[in-house]
């Protein structure tokens, strides 16, 4: 079977932060792909490099962070080395973005209608009135009640959940083929989280949009993603179909992570815990970065770094496999 070309292909991506105590490698040689219409979940603890990876793909890496190596291809075309102006055109038209805090994605000074119409017209030939009609459609699609009345409201007139819906509408405005969603539900209340996740899932199915869903919440991944990449200290520990990673986690880190989530209906006196904390970027140990916390550590882990290799249905970077 000839594999179709992936929508997004990331090869050996490295992201560096020059600091006065030396250069920190925040993302260290990671590779993955996203197929058209696929939802790839990226999980990991804060500082694992998951958000940086997303930012690098849409070309919004905050300086002094920079891409130090590797390639990012969208439909086979390199996008990691494009000039700012070209990248800006790709952003929005081909790659949409949804961030954790909806307020940072919306300009508080402009009406929702203006922000939507501008985005639509930047990426498509449309008259203002056509764009306005399209904006209304989008707001309807993301489930904003009485959308025609709210089109001319300002962002602060919306609640948190509604604002995140507007951001999703904005991300979808140009019918992008890929959406980078960075912790899209973290700032929201639990009952609203479920609504937003359901909405994102449905829209992507309807439009065939692929999603890179960056989150720390395994539950969100389990419900939404087709495949999962588990990141640890700037590297991918395990990547594979969601069922394989969640139900039969191979990497000791993934395994520990799954055990540390309290499960309703399964009373335990003690949760499985991974001792210690993820190392700071300044103190990443030699060999496998997880070795100080790993219950299954052996000699090789202390000296040699494992690369991703197939194990079961997934790819795992661990010397056990």
């Amino acid at each position: 079977m000839a594999a179709p070309q992936p929508l997004l292909q990331v090869d050996n991506l490295r992201i560096e932060f020059p600091t006065r105590r030396g250069t920190l490698l925040a993302v260290d040689d990671i590779s993955f792909h996203i197929d058209p219409g696929e939802v790839l979940g990226v999980v990991g603890e804060s500082g694992a490099g998951k958000s940086l990876t997303g930012a690098a793909i849409i070309g919004l890496l905050d300086p002094p962070g920079r891409i130090a190596g590797g390639q990012i291809r969208l439909d086979g075309r390199r996008i990691d080395n494009l000039p700012y102006e070209q990248m800006r055109r790709i952003r929005g038209k081909e790659i949409g973005a949804i961030f954790q805090d909806p307020l940072t994605s919306l300009n508080p000074l402009y009406k929702i209608s203006r922000q939507l119409v501008e985005t639509i017209r930047t990426h498509a030939e449309m008259s203002p009135s056509q764009a306005r009609a399209r904006a209304l459609e989008l707001l309807d699609a993301v489930g904003i009640p009485a959308a025609s009345d709210r089109l001319d409201a300002y962002p602060h007139e919306f609640s948190g959940g509604m604002r995140q819906r507007v951001v999703i509408a904005l991300a979808l405005a140009a019918n992008p083929r890929l959406i980078i969603a960075d912790e899209p539900t973290t700032a929201l209340d639990v009952s609203i989280q479920a609504q937003i996740i359901a909405l994102l899932k449905q829209l992507c199915r309807d439009h065939g949009t692929a999603v890179m869903l960056v989150t720390h919440d395994m539950g969100v991944i389990a419900e939404t993603a087709d495949r999962v990449a588990v990141m640890y200290a700037g590297r991918i520990a395990e990547i594979g179909p969601v069922a394989a990673v969640i139900k039969q986690a191979r990497h000791p880190y993934t395994h520990g992570l799954m055990g540390s989530i309290p499960a309703i209906g399964h009373p335990v006196e003690q949760l499985t815990q991974i001792d210690g904390a993820m190392p700071r970027l300044t103190e990443i140990p030699k060999g496998c970065a997880f070795n100080p916390r790993c219950p299954e550590v052996f000699d090789k882990c202390l000296s040699h770094r494992p690369d991703l290799r197939p194990a079961g249905g997934s790819d795992v970077s661990c010397w056990l496999f």
Binding site: G143, S159, G161, M162, D189, V190, S191, I192, Q193, A194, Q195, A198, K201, D217, M218, G219, V220, A222, E223, T224, V242, A243, I246, K247, M258, I261, A263, I264
Partner: peptide, 20 residues
Amino acid sequence: ETIPDLDVIGRRREPLAGEV
């Protein structure tokens, strides 16, 4: 209802509408 269940992967659910 809103708690994702790790045992049921890809569950479709119809979350209750409305906000606080």
